[in-house]
Computed example of a mutant assay.
Amino acid sequence: MAELSGLRETFVRVKETDLHILSECDVTKPAGELTLTFRLQVEHYIEAFPEFALSRAPLSDDKLAVPIIRDMIAAGRNADVGPMAAVAGAISEYVGKGLIDRGCKEIIIENGGDIFLQRSRDCTIAVFAGDSPLSNRVGLQISSSRMPLGICTSSGTVGHSMSLGSADSVTVLAASAVMADAAATRLGNEVGTGNNKKDGINRALDVAGRLPDIRGALVICGEVMGAVGEVELVPLD
C-alpha cells in the first residue's frame, strides 16, 4: 500500500469484499453504500446468469447489463479470461470513482491486492510476493501524472484468488483497475507451474506486451523477477 501521510483510513467488509480505503475525507458512509450497490449489481447478475460467475473463458457482451458488468466482460475478453477475474479490481475502481464523484480528491482503495489509485502526489507502492526474498523489497514508483491508475496483483502462492500459475506475484498497471485485474490473472496463468522460472516470466511478459490497455507488468517468481512497459522500480528498506 502507498504511504499514509495526511490520509484517513476506512475499512469496508461485505462478504468476500474487503476494502482498505485511504482518503483525505471521511468516507465511511458513502464507501459502505457504494460497496453494497456494486456488490449487489454483481450478485443480481449472477443470479440471472450463473455462467458469469463460473466461466473461466471470455463471455459475449451484454448491452443490457449495468456498466460494472459490461466492464468486467470487456476486460475478460481483452485478457482472454472469465469476467470474474476482474471482480476485485472492478469493485475497487467503481467505489473509488464513486467517492471522487462525491468530492474526494485523494483516494487509494485496496481490495485483496487490487488497487485503485488517485492522488495529487507521487506514490511508492510496495510489492508483496509471499515467501519470495524480493517480497516488500521492491516498490513501484507511480507519478501523479499517471493517475487515476489501477494496480492489480495475482498470485499462485498467496491468497485465495484463482491463478493457474506458480508466480509469487504478477502485478499489472493499467488505466482501468478492471483491466489490470483481468490481465494479472491471465499473466499469472501464463507463468505456468514448471521449474524454469525465467521461461515462465518471459512467457508472461511476452503476452503482457500484446494485451490491450495495460501500461506495464511486473512478475516475481522466487528470487527472479522481470518487468515490461511503464514500470519504474525502486528499492525498499
Score class of each variant (00 low, 15 high):
Lys29Tyr: 08
Leu22Gly: 09
Tyr94Cys: 05
Gly139Asn: 00
Pro148Asp: 00
Asp168Ala: 07
Glu232Ser: 14
Ile21Thr: 08
Pro58Glu: 07
Gln118Trp: 05
Phe128Asp: 06
Val158Arg: 03
Gly32Ser: 13
Met72Ile: 07
Gly130Gln: 01
Ala183Ser: 15
Leu19Gly: 00
Val170Glu: 11
Lys63Glu: 15
Ile108Ser: 03
Ser60Pro: 02
Glu106Gln: 15
Gly150Gln: 01
Ile46Tyr: 10
Gly222Pro: 05
Gly156Ile: 01
Gly103Cys: 11
Leu54Asp: 12
Ser163Thr: 07
Ala88Asn: 04
Ala183Glu: 06
Leu36Tyr: 05
Glu190His: 02
Val42Pro: 07
Ala184Ser: 15
Val138Trp: 12
Phe11Lys: 15
Tyr45Gln: 03
Val158Asp: 06
Gly156Gln: 06
Gly150Ala: 00
Gly103Lys: 09
Ile73Thr: 00
Met84His: 03
Leu173Asp: 13
Phe116Lys: 01
Ser60Val: 04
Glu47Ser: 14
Pro235His: 02
Gly216Met: 05
Met147Ala: 03
Pro133Ser: 13
Gly222Met: 09
Gly226Gln: 06
Glu16Cys: 09
Ile220Trp: 11
Val14Ile: 15
Leu205Phe: 13
Gly76Thr: 04
Glu16Ile: 08
Ala79Val: 10
Leu40Phe: 14
Val207Ser: 05
Asn202Cys: 14
Gln41Val: 02
Lys198Tyr: 12
Gly139Pro: 00
Thr171Phe: 08
Arg146Asp: 11
Ala48Tyr: 07
Pro30His: 10
Met84Gly: 07
Glu190Tyr: 09
Ser55Phe: 14
Leu22His: 07
Glu3His: 11
Thr153Asn: 04
Ser169Arg: 04
Tyr94Phe: 15
Asn196Thr: 06
Cys221Tyr: 09
Asn111Met: 10
Ile69Leu: 12
Pro30Trp: 13
